[in-house]
Design a protein around this nucleic acid. Structure first.
Lengths: 224, 224
DNA sequence: GAGGCTGCCTAACGTTTGGTAGGTTACCGG
DNA sequence: CCGGTAACCTACCAAACGTTAGGCAGCCTC
C-alpha cells in the first residue's frame, strides 16, 4: 500500500553498477546478507529480499542476473571484508610484533567482524555449508585467500614454538577457526564480550604466553 | 522405474511406531537424516525423502504427521545418540580417571559420532542453525541435557587446575565444542584422522598434561 | 470369508519458488 | 521539447513445495 510515496530516488546514473554497487543494488545485497545470515540459503528468496528493500520481486532482476548472483556477491564480500579487516589490523601492528600478538589481533578482528561487523561476514560463514555445489565452488577462491592468512599466522606461531609438538599446523588452524566460526551460533550481545572471548580463546589455545600479547602494542615484554 | 519389485515388506505390525520406529518409518528417518546433514532443512523436502526411501511423497504421511515431525525426530535422535555414546565411554573409564582423560574420551567420542557415526548426529549439529523457530525451541530440551555433560567435564578440569586463570568455564566449553562441531565442515576421510584431531585439540587446549591422558586407561601417571 | 488394518498409491489442493515479458514512470543530456 | 535509459511496476510462467483425500491391494483375526 502507498508504494510510491516512500521510495527514495537516486539522481546519479549509477554508472558502473557491476563493480561498485550503489543505491538499490547495495540495498538488495544488504537484504540478501541479512537473510543469508539469519535464515540460510533456501529461505533467502527473491521475494523476501524485495520485501526488505521495499520493491517488488521482479525488480531485482534489473540489478542482478539471478538470485545466485546476489548470494555469491554477498558471500565474496563477506570473506573480503573480514580478510581486509584482519590484514589491516595486522598491518597496523609494529613490525617486530611477536607471532602470538599477531594471532591475538587476528582472532579479535575475526570475531569482531563476524559477530558485530555486519551481516556479510556472518552470512559468508553461516550460509556456506548448504550452498548449491556450483555456488560453493565459485566461493572457494576468495575463501582460500583468507585461509592462507591464517596458515601463515599459525606457521609463525609454530616457528616460535607456540604450537605443541605433535599438533600439526593444519589441526591448530582448523581448531582455532572452528571455534571462532562457531561463536556465531551462541554469541549474544548481553553475554561474554568479544574481548573476553578472544582473550579466553588465546589463553586456552596458547597458554600463558598469550596473556602478554593480548593487549595491543604492549611494549614487547610482559608488563610484570 | 520398476517401483514394486525391490520393495521390502515388514511382516510385523510395527506396534508402537511412535516410540520405536521400525521398517519404513526408520527408513524415512534415515533418509531425512541424510538430507538434513548434507542439504539442510529447507532442501530436505518430503519428495526428496520419499525418493530416497523408494516411495511416493504422500505415503510419508502414513508414518509421520508432518515434515517437521520427521526433522525433530532426527535431531532429537542425533543429540541422544552422541549423548549416550559420550556417557557410555565415560562410564567405561576407571572410576579414578583424571579429568583430562575423561575430557579426552569425550572429545574423541563426540568427533567419532559426528564425523563417522552416521547422519543423525551430524544432522543435529549442522541443520540446527537454520531451523524454524518453533522447531528449534522443541529441540533445545535434548540439547541442553547434552551441554550439561560438557559443563560438568569442564568444571572437573577447571577444579583440577587445567583451565587457565581468566578463562571462564563457559568460554572453555564453547571453544572446545565449537571446534568439535565445526570439524564436520572440513573433515574428509582421507585427511587428518579422528584420533589425530582429538589428540591435537586436547594438546592445544590443555597443553602437555593432555598427552598423558590421551591414551585410554594409561596408568594414572605419564609414561616417561 | 467378512471385516479391518497396514502400507502404499494416484491425484490433486493451494501456495510459493526463481525467473520473464512488457508496460509505465521520472529523470537525463541535447 | 525530444528521445533514451534507469528503475520500477504488473502479470504471468512452469516447477516444486507441504499436505490431503480417496482408493486399492495384501495380510491378520475372527
Amino acid at each position: 500500500m502507498a508504494p510510491t510515496a516512500l521510495r527514495k530516488q537516486s539522481r546519479k546514473p549509477a554508472a558502473a553498477a557491476d563493480k561498485a554497487p550503489s543505491g538499490a543494488a547495495r540495498e538488495i545485497l544488504d537484504a540478501g546478507a541479512w537473510l543469508l545470515r539469519h535464515r540460510g540459503y533456501e529461505a533467502t528468496t527473491t521475494r523476501a529480499i524485495a520485501e526488505r528493500v521495499g520493491i517488488k520481486a521482479g525488480s531485482i532482476y534489473h540489478h542482478f542476473r539471478s538470485k545466485d548472483a546476489i548470494v555469491q556477491h554477498v558471500l565474496d564480500d563477506g570473506v573480503r571484508i573480514v580478510g581486509d579487516a584482519v590484514l589491516g589490523e595486522l598491518g597496523a601492528l609494529p613490525k617486530q610484533a611477536p607471532p602470538l600478538q599477531r594471532l591475538a589481533v587476528a582472532v579479535r578482528t575475526h570475531l569482531l567482524a563476524s559477530l558485530e561487523g555486519g551481516d556479510y561476514v556472518s552470512a559468508s560463514i553461516r550460509a556456506f555449508a548448504f550452498l548449491p555445489k556450483d555456488l560453493r565452488r565459485n566461493c572457494r577462491v576468495e575463501r582460500r585467500r583468507y585461509e592462507d592468512i591464517w596458515r601463515k599466522l599459525i606457521a609463525e606461531a609454530a616457528r616460535a614454538g607456540h604450537v605443541p609438538k605433535g599438533v600439526s599446523p593444519d589441526a591448530a588452524r582448523l581448531m582455532l577457526l572452528g571455534a571462532l566460526n562457531w561463536a556465531g551460533e551462541w554469541y549474544r550481545p548481553g553475554g561474554l564480550s568479544i574481548d573476553e572471548i578472544s582473550a579466553s580463546y588465546m589463553k586456552l589455545a596458547f597458554g600463558q604466553a598469550a596473556a602478554a600479547a593480548r593487549r595491543r602494542t604492549p611494549a614487547t615484554k610482559p608488563r610484570a
